[in-house]
Amino acid sequence: MDLGDWVSTPQNWVFLVVALPTLLAGFKVVQTSNVVHAVLYLVGALGGSAALFILLGAEFVAWTVVLVYIGAVIVLFLFGIMITRAPLGFDVTLSHPVRVRVAAAVVSFVLFALIGGAMLAEFEGAAIPETAATRTAALGASIFERFVVPFEVVSVVLLAALIGGIVLARRDPANGEEGAGL
């Protein structure tokens, strides 16, 4: 597929319209000096990824990301910020000093170049076929027939996380001490 074909496909323009704001939001998540803004930019990045899932025809995954991530996880993060009394306004000490940031930027750029270069070399010209969107019924049948054992394991993981979260975060009423020892 050459550039002319790529540009004349409307899906690619939708991709660009969604992907560029997603990248910008992702950059602002790690760059902004305001904790609440960082969480709200993460909403933008995750919403962009959900829009890309719809573009790919994975509707159930897209709405699950909207419900679970944007609906629940983001609220959890906002509670975490408030409980740990992170400075809510503009705060220059939120990130490490410039020296560390330059080193981290080099590391992450090298990582991006390695991953991106490997992907470009391996999947040169491979296209996503324009098939019908995955139906939620087919996905549900797949989960509850072929992937039923991993599904049960994930439910046990969630139960363990639930119990673990309560045990870790509650205050111990027996000895009046705040939380478990560390």
Partner: peptide, 23 residues
Amino acid sequence: MLINQFLLLGAALFAMGVYGVLT
């Protein structure tokens, strides 16, 4: 749609996440 445009976007977001964890 090419697969590479999604893979590059994923790689860029992943690298940004690594940057955030480090800084």
